[in-house]
Simulated scan of single mutants.
Amino acid sequence: MKTKWIPYPTVLEGKNVDLIPLERDHFEELYEAAADKDLWTLIPTDCSEKPLFYQNYELALSEREAGNQYPFVIKHKKTGKLIGSTRFFEIYPSDKKLEIGWTWITKEYWGTAINLECKLLLLTYCFEVLQTNRVQLKTKDTNFRSRKAIEKIGGVLEGVLRKDRIQNDGTTRNAAYYSILDEEWETSKSMILKQIEEKQLPFHR
């Protein structure tokens, strides 16, 4: 079992959203948000299918117990509703690195500052609390919207892994791998804050 680098329960509090540790009590409400098939078109596992949703989110809890993942639900502060999920995974404390992914939010909040605020909360925790050397992000190589979003927060393209994942429909996907390093964090942070300001949802700690 890996050392649990991220203590439970870790909650990341923002201005518009809080990132709260995933619990089984969240499953029913979270699945209602996840049932929109459009959310999963560019993600390898289609969690709009209820059996797959429960299987994958049960696995996320067991992986948290093993120290391999740390899944969050995204709670909208104003409405109190769960509007998505994100997580830390590929967690390697000895190498001071991890990955951020499995991120989705309901369509109502697409194009807002919500995803940027989530990334700010996650990356701030990584670099300023965990003192990570490296944070990895990846997306389907043809998901240019996601790739552009990663680049706009300071992600540096490292390459494309061909046939990196088998999707739940049996096809394979290539994955574009990005990273942000500790010495790049201040620049990345400034980029995120500027974009949040432009969307008129300023972030306050």
Score class of each variant (00 low, 15 high):
residue 168 N to T: 08
residue 38 D to C: 08
residue 8 Y to P: 12
residue 193 L to Y: 00
residue 69 Q to N: 15
residue 34 A to I: 04
residue 179 S to E: 03
residue 138 K to V: 08
residue 49 E to W: 09
residue 120 L to S: 09
residue 32 E to C: 07
residue 144 F to G: 00
residue 60 A to G: 03
residue 148 K to R: 12
residue 61 L to W: 07
residue 150 I to N: 03
residue 20 I to K: 08
residue 77 K to M: 04
residue 149 A to H: 00
residue 50 K to Y: 12
residue 139 T to I: 00
residue 23 E to I: 06
residue 184 E to F: 10
residue 21 P to F: 00
residue 161 L to H: 10
residue 152 K to E: 14
residue 120 L to F: 15
residue 72 F to P: 05
residue 127 F to Q: 07
residue 98 L to R: 07
residue 163 K to P: 03
residue 114 I to W: 06
residue 30 L to D: 08
residue 144 F to Q: 13
residue 198 E to Q: 15
residue 23 E to K: 11
residue 52 L to C: 00
residue 35 A to C: 12
residue 20 I to W: 13
residue 127 F to R: 07
residue 13 E to Y: 06
residue 117 E to W: 06
residue 69 Q to D: 15
residue 22 L to Y: 05
residue 69 Q to V: 11
residue 46 D to L: 02
residue 29 E to T: 10
residue 42 L to D: 15
residue 123 L to G: 14
residue 119 K to E: 06
residue 157 L to T: 07
residue 111 G to T: 04
residue 107 K to A: 01
residue 199 K to Q: 11
residue 163 K to W: 10
residue 165 R to I: 14
residue 52 L to D: 05
residue 60 A to T: 03
residue 68 N to R: 14
residue 99 E to D: 12
residue 189 K to Q: 00
residue 92 Y to W: 09
residue 173 R to F: 01
residue 89 F to G: 00
residue 110 W to S: 08
residue 25 D to G: 15
residue 118 C to T: 13
residue 62 S to Y: 07
residue 43 I to F: 15
residue 30 L to A: 04
residue 187 T to P: 03
residue 134 R to N: 13
residue 113 A to R: 02
residue 46 D to W: 00
residue 173 R to I: 09
residue 29 E to F: 08
residue 107 K to T: 08
residue 6 I to S: 09
residue 180 I to L: 10
residue 69 Q to Y: 11
residue 20 I to F: 10
residue 158 E to G: 04
residue 188 S to H: 03
residue 18 D to P: 02
residue 26 H to I: 01
residue 36 D to F: 08
residue 57 Y to Q: 05
residue 126 C to G: 11
residue 13 E to I: 08
residue 72 F to R: 01
residue 19 L to E: 09
residue 84 G to A: 07
residue 131 Q to N: 15
residue 151 E to C: 05
residue 139 T to N: 02
residue 161 L to N: 01
residue 146 S to R: 06
residue 15 K to Y: 11
residue 195 Q to T: 08
residue 24 R to S: 15
residue 80 G to V: 10
residue 97 K to R: 14
residue 138 K to R: 13
residue 176 A to Y: 07
residue 125 Y to P: 04
residue 204 H to N: 14
residue 131 Q to R: 12
residue 170 G to K: 02
residue 32 E to S: 13
residue 86 T to A: 12
residue 192 I to F: 02
residue 195 Q to G: 10
residue 165 R to K: 14
residue 120 L to P: 06
residue 182 D to R: 14
residue 158 E to L: 07
residue 16 N to P: 03
residue 5 W to R: 11
residue 77 K to R: 14
residue 5 W to C: 14
residue 88 F to E: 06
residue 44 P to Q: 03
residue 114 I to T: 13
residue 76 H to D: 11
residue 110 W to R: 07
residue 58 E to D: 13
residue 77 K to E: 02
residue 7 P to H: 12
residue 72 F to Y: 09
residue 155 G to L: 04
residue 104 W to A: 03
